[in-house]
Write a protein that binds this DNA or RNA. Structure first.
Lengths: 245, 245
DNA sequence: CGACGTGTTGATCTCTCTCAATTAGAGTGG
DNA sequence: CCACTCTAATTGAGAGAGATCAACACGTCG
């Protein structure tokens, strides 16, 4: 069901994406194996799964996670269209984390050794991928800072701002009238190292203060200044100016 | 002071490192700019620093960290010889995290655009680097799981085991008679999202139970089984077998 | 209509933080 | 060799953020 051609990939229209040469596009098309749809709740990669293929998220949301044997789950980061899935595992190795669809998703499937092929014959794409990988790491870094050092209120504020920005960046532009927001409170809790109950109480507290609103599967930021102050973010997530005392 | 030649790099002797062709070694040598020594406590890269070069840690320990404007600090991961420093930041961008030396360290310095040069002319090295980057991310993933979902005892047990393994892997082989361990309790606390006081109390509790000992800057694991049970690690960090209920 | 998942809310409980004070060790200078 | 200093490690006490437990509301779905 190799339906979409890479040349007409909808993601290419987004401002985030670098332009590709004909050769690069041709190469991508050549290593693309399939295109699959995955419904919400379903695992794209199971924890410990061996030899998972390489994917690209074409549409929908997903998340990476790890669990402990007694069921405690930590969401490592959320995946939006354009993100890679499965770069982490070395060839022939098993996955150290699971990946699960959050909404209805469509994925492009690549052979596992595509990564090496790509580095060899299209070094510029290879370079892009190491950069994307490094960038995904920086998202995890941000979450680790939150979970390790921010209070529940601060964590929620941080998550709302960062997810809003990522979701808004996928939009055609225009009205900051809220973005689609498919997370349940359980996902928020698991992403921030909180209990479901406490995540709920904190969300309600911020909502009552008029900082944001989540309704009908959409997220509206009503007081970005206040949220950013809570999150200790300056500008757009640039590192904070450090007072010397 | 370009003292060490890449050909005789001490790191190459380690079993962890893949062998390189003459061409690859020559290339690395060619982009290597310098070799510098950094004393403990000193920043290798400051948070927010623009245009930091690319480094490789030749000897000693370091760590990546982020701080909030009021001083709260989270250590993202620890760096041991062979690790890369500074791949995360895009060219011309500022560093999203700081890097600080933990012991006396020696670093190889590379031009910032070495990364692209390398991808273009030595794709196999480029591939290695994306894999190394992905691997570093998986270390952060592990820590995030700890900080988000493990109790203080479990976090400490996990950290001790994982650091022990990494440090031991650098050793010539032989006696598991403990490894050099340069972290203060403050570092442990900042790496696990705990307060210094609580990290201390938890360490003492585990030590009193005979699980480990830290003495004279060395770490000894006295009851790895018990530590691994606490950490919920099976074998060597493989994902836990999931009970279906 | 009952079952189920998600969201709410209140009442405890407890793990971890903060505050404070003390001890131990390493380094310095006289 | 000994006072003096500084930092890291300890330990106890009290406070608090967030967890757990328990009910209940609401919407969806078979």
């Amino acid at each position: 069901m190799n339906s979409t051609s890479c040349k007409s990939c909808p993601l290419r229209a987004l401002p985030l994406f670098t332009s590709h040469t004909e050769s690069e596009l041709g190469f991508i098309q050549a290593i693309k194996r399939d295109e699959i749809a995955v419904p919400p709740e379903q695992d794209i990669i199971r924890e410990g799964q061996a030899d998972a293929p390489l994917y690209t998220l074409l549409s929908g949301w997903a998340f990476r996670y790890k669990t402990l044997s007694d069921g405690r789950r930590q969401i490592l980061n959320f995946l939006l269209p354009g993100d890679f899935i499965g770069v982490q595992q070395k060839m022939g190795d098993s996955a150290a984390h699971g990946v699960q669809a959050l909404t209805d998703t469509v994925l492009c499937v690549f052979k596992r050794d595509a990564l090496w092929q790509l580095h060899r014959s299209e070094p510029r794409l290879g370079f892009d991928i190491t950069w994307l990988t490094a960038h995904e790491e920086s998202l995890v870094d941000d979450t680790l800072l939150s979970v390790g050092r921010r209070s529940a209120e601060e964590r929620i504020a941080t998550l709302l701002i960062l997810l809003f920005k990522r979701a808004a960046a996928m939009l055609p532009e225009g009205g900051a009238q809220g973005v689609a927001f498919p997370l349940t409170q359980q996902h928020i809790a698991d992403g921030l190292g909180l209990s479901r109950v406490h995540a709920n109480k904190t969300l309600r507290k911020l909502e009552a203060r008029g900082l944001h609103r989540i309704e009908g599967g959409r997220l509206y930021l009503l007081d970005i200044k206040a949220l950013a102050r809570l999150a200790d973010l300056y500008g757009d997530g640039k590192p904070a100016p450090r007072p010397l005392i």
